[in-house]
Design a protein around this nucleic acid. Structure first.
Lengths: 218, 218
DNA sequence: GTCTATACGACGATAGAC
DNA sequence: GTCTATCGTCGTATAGAC
């Protein structure tokens, strides 16, 4: 076997961060933070409970006083990630407005969720396959609900004639996809602020929907 | 530990496929195909050489008569994936033409590469972190070259005034990102053909660049 | 080239002292 | 709640017969 050397990252060098309010305190919270950084970098199966323990400064066995399994730690992270995104998206469209306004608000919220918690978005989007069906189900349901918000706004814009799109599904894939990848590259080593990225992507989403918009200079 | 049950996929149900010409024949090729399917579904660290052997119908130890390590199998797959994409993108812009034509050709080639080899694109994009720096380097270089093709076309369109974009980097992130995720959802269980997806995404890319285009009905 | 057998370290998880 | 110690399993990889 190799290992011991360095491996290339799949994300920018960013600090480990979790949303306020939902993160447990004490050792339980420190385990969650450490696992987030390690899962984002090495993947779930590439991270051992011994490495998590070392990062926290506890013995690996102590983890089991706080979580029933390593898998449950991932399940909590994935749930927090999907819940945070769904909460932000719901808030974004709560004010209502024309479809173009709601699409802009959705895209803005989506991008900012990924710039504010890039590691969480990477883990949430790319480690879900490591969860059993039972543990993944709650997060998957939230993901479906989040996708629904975008599909509904696109359908509304087609309905009232403000969008120029023959089909909502492919547009939703494109808009969702370009937002989802933000967590993989956003970080201090690139030149744009979170707001610049968000406003640029808002313009891109509106353009995809068939509305010509100026794009704010980055 | 759990396991034994089913786990959610991170991709659509698609057949395992590799590009013609570059894939080795015989047992070596069958190992590559089996590993592609397993890595795409379970990730590199979630796949054991015993599972690969079982999928091929050989003993796990026989793998080492064809590859020096499990990691080298992944390295070969990632290299094939990046090489295939880079080849197609290079061919797409070889004919030249106006920036809008070249952008359309690039996006079309990018999407079709991901619809034709979705598993390969998933492994290439999301398992690179499991490779050592040395084994990842050749593929990374190809990835940088592929990104360069897109950046150059966007810059040319701004230069000659045909594109309306203040900054090429964010547009490249958006256009590249929406294409990269195609491999995660394209498959027989969704209603669009590869051509429909490609033409829709071509229109999206042109719209992002600031060119108003009709989108072909899906 | 493929097999059987196995080395041997790392894995997730548990037991039990404090 | 944290530790030490350890269990049983599975990991990658090798040796050597055929």
């Amino acid at each position: 076997m190799r290992d011991g050397g360095w491996e290339p990252r799949r994300l920018a060098a960013v600090a480990v961060a979790l949303p306020d309010g939902v993160t447990p305190s004490g050792t339980r919270g420190r385990i969650l933070h450490a696992a987030l950084g390690l899962f984002a970098e090495w993947g779930f199966h590439g991270t051992s409970i011994r490495k998590i323990g070392a990062a926290v400064g506890i013995n690996s066995a102590t983890l089991y006083a706080h979580y029933p399994s390593k898998e449950q730690v991932l399940a909590d992270l994935v749930q927090i990630g999907h819940a945070e995104l769904h909460h932000r998206l719901t808030e974004a469209v709560r004010a209502g407005g024309a479809p173009a306004e709601r699409l802009a608000a959705l895209m803005r919220a989506h991008v900012l969720a990924h710039t504010d918690f890039p590691l969480l978005s990477v883990v949430t989007n790319s480690e879900l396959h490591a969860l059993s069906a039972e543990l993944a189900a709650p997060a998957l349901a939230l993901g479906v609900a989040s996708e629904r918000l975008l599909l509904d706004v696109l359908a509304a814009g087609i309905e009232d004639g403000s969008f120029d799109l023959p089909d909502v599904r492919l547009a939703a894939r494109a808009i969702g996809g370009m937002g989802q990848r933000v967590g993989n590259w956003f970080g201090p080593d690139q030149p744009h602020t979170r707001t610049q990225v968000a406003e640029a992507f808002v313009s891109f989403a509106l353009r995809i929907a068939g509305i010509t918009t100026p794009i704010p200079p980055a």
